[in-house]
Every structure is written in C-alpha cells, then in structure tokens.
Design a protein around this nucleic acid. Structure first.
Lengths: 236, 236
DNA sequence: TAGTGGTCTAGACCACGGT
DNA sequence: CCGTGGTCTAGACCACTAG
C-alpha cells in the first residue's frame, strides 16, 4: 500500500468522528488500544492521533486520553487547505478571470524571485460565495514554468491545490501570510457587495511548494461581517 | 534532567542558527549526523528537527535535508506565543486597566461556560507599542478561580503567559481565533492614533489551557498599516 | 549509487490524572 | 494504584534527491 499506515488509521478515526460514532466529549481508544486493534506499534498510533490533533478533531491530554473536540464552523482558513476543502457550508466559486498568461505585475509585500521573473506568469481570479453571498475575492499568481498547459484545463474537482497535486505533483509544504484590515476599493466593494471604503480583511500569501524556489502568490479580500475567518492552533 | 533531550537539541540548533553558525540556505546536520553528534536515536533527532520546522526556522525535504529558512519579521502572531516573545523589534506595553475583578460582560463570539460564569472574572487591558507607535489594544478575561491573587502581583517578565506558566502552572495548549476587519470605534481609534472608522483588524481568541474547561478569552484591535500581522504555517 | 528523510517495529521507563 | 500519554532506544526497510 502506498498510503502510510498512520494515515489510514487517521482517516478511519476521522470518519468515525464525522459519522458520530465518537461524539464531542467522547474519548478515542487509547494509544495501546489502537495498537492492538490495528496491529501497529505505538509510534504509528501516536502519529495518527497527533495528526488528528493538528487538524483540530481531538485534544490529547497527558494521563487522560484523546477527547473529541467541538469544531467551530467559521472558515478554517489560514491553513494550507484552501477554500473548497475548508468550509462545510455551501460554497460556490465564480471565475472573474480564467487562468491566463500575463506579466508579473502584482503589488504584494512578497516579491517574485529573479528566476520567476524570467518566466511568464499565470494568473487567475475567483469570487467565492457562501450561501449565495459573496465573501471572498482571490487572486493567484504563479510561474507557468512548472504548470504547463494549466490555462487550457479545468481544475480537478474545482480545487486549485488538488490540480497542482494530481496533475503536476506539486505539494504545498507551507505558507507565509500577512493580514491587514483595509478600506475596500471600489472594485472590491462592488464584488463583495459592501460599501466603498468598508473595512475588509486583506490576506497576502506566499505558498512554499515541494519544488525549491517555486512559490505561489495569492491575495484574498474577505468580507468578514457574516463569515469571520477562523483559525485553530494546537501546541505539540 | 527534566527538559526532554529533543528540546535541548532543538534549542541548541536554534541558538546556532540565531548566532549565524548556520545561515539562511545552509543545511543543518542530517538526522544521522545528529544521532552520533548528540548520542541519541533518530526518533529524538527527528523530533527536534520537526519542532524547528514548526517554528519556521528550517524547511525539511525528503532526500535533501533540513535547510535554514529566511524568517520574516512581521508580528509572529496568531500563534500561541503571545506578543512579548513574538516580536524582535522594540516593544513597549502600557496597562490601560490593571488586572481587576469584574463581572463577565464581554461581547465576543465566544461565550464563557456556565462554570466560569459562577466565578468572578479577572480583566485587564493593555496597549502595545512597536518603535514607540501604538499598534495593538489587547483585552483579556479569565476566571479568577484558578489564578488567585493574580491582580495583586506584577507579571513575570511582563508576560501574561509566562506568569500563568510559572506562577500557576497553567499552560496554553491551543487556541481558536476569529478574524474580522472592522471600523475603529472612537475609543479604539484614539488609542491606536487612527481616524474613527478606519479599518482595524479585530481578533478574538479563546485559549485552551492545560486545565480542562478552563479558558482564557482575549480580543485584539490591531492597526495594520505599518505592522501587518504575520503568520507562518508548515505542513507535517 | 550514496545520502537524505519517511515510516515502522518492539520494546522500555517515566510523568500525569483520577481512584 | 492503574491506565493514560510523553520520551527514548536500537534497530529496519523504503522513497526521494542528486551526482
């Protein structure tokens, strides 16, 4: 099997939580119990549980066990997961600009590298809706060098990151973000259906990929009145 | 020794990076090299390197090694570390309200639990400066039950979290946050020296502690014009 | 091919939480 | 006290990167 054993167990437990076999407040089987149930060693059981903790499904406590947490439902953004995977609610996406080749003329605090500047830039822009209400404008820039033909295809299951992973074998390994509150420009205000000058959340992102020196740059404008951006964080 | 071995090695490597023994782009010793250098096994070496990756000091890549990253210098917030530890630049703090006992009357999206409501609430408020410029208003609420006498003492090294850890043995094990862009109220605008109605970043936080059912609630108002809020995130 | 990190086994001892 | 998770040893095999 190509999928690591810990990942299989992690997904198995996650499904049981989502199905309701384990409810909020319940304790998952202990590490030792998982060991015998799945015929694995503690290293593997621990890895599965640690991953579930990182995802926010459980809290692990010394001497007690792994307790199922209540998961909040605002946008689980500020993680690497991307929008389509992060939100439980009904989400729609509309392309404002389909992927196209342009020059590098974005104005973020992050700057493309000299190497990237030598290649053409692939750009696309989307408007995201939750419950039929526009909540987020998203712009993306990346060097076309490593994603040839991107602009000629549809996204895999509507997801940018899935497309990168499945078609180009590019994985996101991290990100740097900067958050600002700004006044909506006329254009952004129109898209998000707020007044010009209304406060919107501006997030700029530099994604680090599995290709050294190859980055993806994004900016988001979020209308946070009804849907604040959420973020969970766990130590360890 | 009470400090885990992996933590010692993690701190040792971190110091060498900070001193410049390893510069941006350099590779740290491989896991095997660390094993023989420190007389440890790979489990321990890996743990140290994984922690350094989580902290954003290195990037680990399969088949290559652990490369020292460039660390950006905006506020490393949105982590659990708190303000005083997160920023390299010159930071000052002024109490707007010293710790005092009040009733639970904050209006965040998080609500105190019934158990917390039965006890008195400890509240304090601070204004944070970077380079002599006000950038953040911070309000904190917590049940006084687990921190008796808090209002009668100074903070340990000016840090709220250090005080909790060292005086009350309370550790932060995670947090949930919500981010919004809002228009500054007159009061907040005055404190942050921006115009009333100017966009400010509003962050509400519910910290999870090592005491089950015991939380700490905070809200931050940030002026993000000169100092955007930064956040690094790494997979694995 | 050599060297790296990723996964995994099969143990061990310890620290913490609740009885 | 027992059961939990936290740390650690001493191996093993595999997958990835690069010369």
């Amino acid at each position: 099997m190509n999928i690591p054993r810990y990942k299989q167990i992690q997904e198995d437990l996650k499904k049981r939580i989502q199905k309701g076999d384990y409810k909020v407040g319940d304790y998952l089987p202990s590490e030792h119990e998982l060991c015998s149930a799945f015929t694995i060693t503690r290293t593997t059981a621990r890895k599965a549980l640690e991953e579930l903790q990182k995802e926010g499904f459980i809290i692990r406590q010394h001497g007690k066990g792994s307790q199922v947490r209540e998961r909040r439902d605002s946008l689980g953004l500020l993680t690497v997961k991307g929008f389509s995977e992060a939100v439980a609610q009904q989400v729609e996406t509309e392309f404002l600009r389909r992927p196209e080749l342009t020059s590098w003329d974005f104005d973020l605090s992050f700057k493309p590298t000299a190497r990237e500047m030598k290649t053409q830039c692939l750009y696309f822009s989307r408007l995201r809706y939750i419950d039929h209400q526009p909540v987020m404008v998203e712009d993306n820039w990346l060097a076309v060098e490593k994603v040839p033909g991107f602009e000629k295809q549809e996204l895999v299951e509507g997801s940018f990151f899935k497309t990168l992973s499945q078609r180009y074998l590019i994985e996101i390994i991290g990100s740097e973000q900067e958050l600002r509150a700004i006044a909506a420009s006329e254009k952004v205000a129109g898209l998000l259906q707020v007044k010009k000058g209304a406060p919107v959340l501006h997030i700029t992102v530099k994604y680090l990929t599995s290709i050294p020196g190859y980055y993806i740059y994004s900016q988001l404008f979020c209308q946070t009145d009804q849907f604040p951006i959420g973020n969970s964080f766990f130590v360890q």
